[in-house]
């Protein structure tokens, strides 16, 4: 029973230029109640936060607590 790969747009967007995950920051990952954010290495070799799991309550701690304003919470497409 192989699993499909179904695409989905994600509500939380991170601006790589502003994200300071490279400096060890994990604030957005830490505060998310649903634990859906992770840190990944970009093609340029920098680290940045991204939304790994599309399981968002659009509640906003990630955006509110980000020290550099890199995170934007949009509404999931299904309900916006």
């Amino acid at each position: 029973m192989p699993l499909a790969q179904t695409s989905t747009t994600v509500p939380v967007i991170v601006n790589d230029d502003l994200c300071i995950a490279d400096k060890g920051c994990t604030v957005c990952v830490d505060v998310c109640p649903l634990d859906v954010l992770r840190i990944v290495e970009t093609d340029e070799g920098n680290k940045t936060a991204f939304m790994k799991y599309d399981e968002c309550w659009y509640c906003m701690p990630c955006e509110a607590d980000c020290p550099t304003g890199a995170v934007t919470v949009n509404l999931p497409y299904l309900l916006k």
């Binding site: 109640p33 649903l34 399981e55 968002c56 309550w57 659009y58 509640c59 999931p76 299904l78 309900l79």
Partner: peptide
């Protein structure tokens, strides 16, 4: 299930 069909689009914090 919320009428939007989005699993985590609940009234309560879905955690």
């Amino acid at each position: 299930l919320p009428t939007s069909g989005y699993l985590m689009g609940t009234y309560e914090n879905p955690t």
